[in-house]
Amino acid sequence: MTPRTLTPAAARRETTSTPRVALVRPKKPLRWITTAAVAAAVVGLHAVAIEGTDFKPELLVDGWKGMAAFIGDAFPPDLSWEKTLKPGLEATLVTLWIGLLGTTLSVPFALLLAALAAENTSPHRLVYQAARAILSFFRAVPDIVFALIFVTAVGLGPFAGVLALICHNTGVMGKLWAESMEEIDAGPQEALRTAGANRIQQVANATLPMVVPQFVGLLLYRFDVNVRSSLVLGLVGAGGIGLLINQSIKSFQFDSMLTHILIVLVLIIVVDQFSAWIRRRLAA
């Protein structure tokens, strides 16, 4: 070893070969058993799920020709203005409006139910349980089922789609909002309680203003999801671009179908960029 001068820090590193404190991890034999049991359970569940869904990759390999023919028929996309593009764009706007109204018009209901269904803002245990149950119901019933129900009342068309989204979105957004209220720092609310503010005053002046950024973020996320849901609602008669996609498939006009799907792709990207932009502005 060549002689050299060491800085104090380097000298300390040099001496680490003889540790001052021995590194001995405490042995936890039970942890291995737990890990193995969890792994076995996960593998077992997957085996059952593969069986239950007829999951057979070889079918996909054998049937590739059918898929290729289908996709080949769709190319090139039909770009004729009168026949495909114009109705596609108009229907896309309807889809967007369904998603927008379905989101915004559910805000009052979601807000009320969220405040009642969050532990730190709910006035009473029974109210809390009831609000949770209502939210669970609206969340458990898929928007498509709501759409089918409303179609029987208001007929085919976008209005049924808006009503369906309002119902389902109230359930989902109310749950998400309630959770974000429960996660918020309880300090400001406690401070107002010690100042003699009643429950409503505490919520309006501490809890709600604290969660505004989370609320807006979740609202934009739900808008994004709802625009995509309203596409699917079109398939069951709620109008919009989903209806056109369904029609073009049924009449074997796969080139029109591809055009509509491309328009949808643009719509989804625009909505996504828009909500990302708003969220960035909020965070700043």
Partner: peptide, 23 residues
């Protein structure tokens, strides 16, 4: 008065002080 202050950061100083009078 709390160690962690417990004001609402997004509101103005005036609005936070008004909250002391909520009762």
């Amino acid at each position: 008065i709390f160690q962690k202050i417990h004001l609402v950061p997004r509101r103005t100083a005036l609005d936070n002080v008004c909250a002391g009078a909520l009762a």
